[in-house]
Amino acid sequence: MSNKTMAILAYVTIIGWVVAYLQYKKSADRNPLVNYHLGQSLGLIILSFILGIALSVVVSLVPTLYFLSLIVSVATLVFLLLGIVAANNEVSKPLPLIGKLFEGKFNFAS
């Protein structure tokens, strides 16, 4: 699997992330591009899980705030698509608004 494919696959669900991570660990040359996108996508996955849990609690208390979960779901999808575009262009560019939070937090090169 090519480095570009691994970087793109990291953004396609948690299963795609695990497959990309395992392929990255197996590869002899560990490309920094794949490492970067693995970190960005893992950060986005963790953030979306945390927000999903928090919003489900809020919505169970105040059902009229259901639109907030729709907004977070659409925003997560947009961030995933922007990550896929950056990985496809082979650019180590952080996700807008939230990408700087994850830079340097995860290192998969070791």
Rank of each mutant, 00 (worst) to 15 (best):
L68R: 00
S69E: 11
A7T: 09
N3M: 07
S73K: 05
L97P: 03
I8H: 02
I45M: 14
V85C: 06
L51N: 04
L9C: 03
Y36S: 02
I15A: 11
K100Q: 10
I71F: 10
Q23D: 12
K100M: 01
P32N: 09
I8C: 07
A20L: 08
S2P: 10
I45N: 01
L44V: 00
K25W: 05
F106P: 04
T76I: 05
T13L: 05
K93V: 06
A7L: 06
A87M: 10
L42N: 02
N35W: 07
A75I: 02
V91S: 14
G104F: 12
F49Y: 14
L51W: 06
L44G: 11
V34N: 00
V74F: 15
P96C: 11
P94E: 11
L65K: 03
P63R: 08
G52V: 10
L51I: 13
G16N: 07
L81A: 13
N88D: 13
A54P: 04
S41H: 07
P32R: 08
V59R: 07
T76C: 11
V18F: 00
L51T: 07
A86S: 15
A54F: 09
P94Q: 13
F67Q: 00
T13E: 02
G99L: 04
L47R: 00
L55G: 04
P32G: 05
S73C: 09
Q40A: 00
I50F: 09
Y21D: 02
A20Q: 03
I45K: 02
S27I: 05
N88K: 14
L51Q: 05
Y36F: 15
D29Q: 14
N88S: 15
F108N: 09
S92F: 06
K4V: 00
S73H: 06
S60I: 08
S27P: 01
Q23N: 13
I8K: 12
K26N: 15
N31V: 06
L42Y: 08
K105S: 04
M1H: 11
L38Q: 07
V78T: 04
G99V: 07
L51E: 01
V91I: 10
L51A: 15
I14M: 10
V34P: 06
I50W: 00
A109N: 13
V74Y: 06
A20N: 04
F108S: 12
L77V: 14
G43H: 04
L55T: 03
V59G: 02
V19G: 02
N88M: 13
P94Y: 05
L81W: 12
L55F: 11
L80E: 13
L44H: 09
V59L: 08
S110E: 15
Y11S: 01
L47Y: 07
S110H: 14
G104T: 12
N89Y: 01
V19H: 10
S92Q: 15
S92L: 08
Q40V: 01
I50K: 03
A87V: 12
N89A: 14
A10G: 08
L44S: 14
A86G: 13
S69K: 13
F106T: 09
V58L: 15
L95S: 12
A75T: 10
L38P: 06
E103L: 03
Y36W: 05
I14N: 03
L82Q: 14
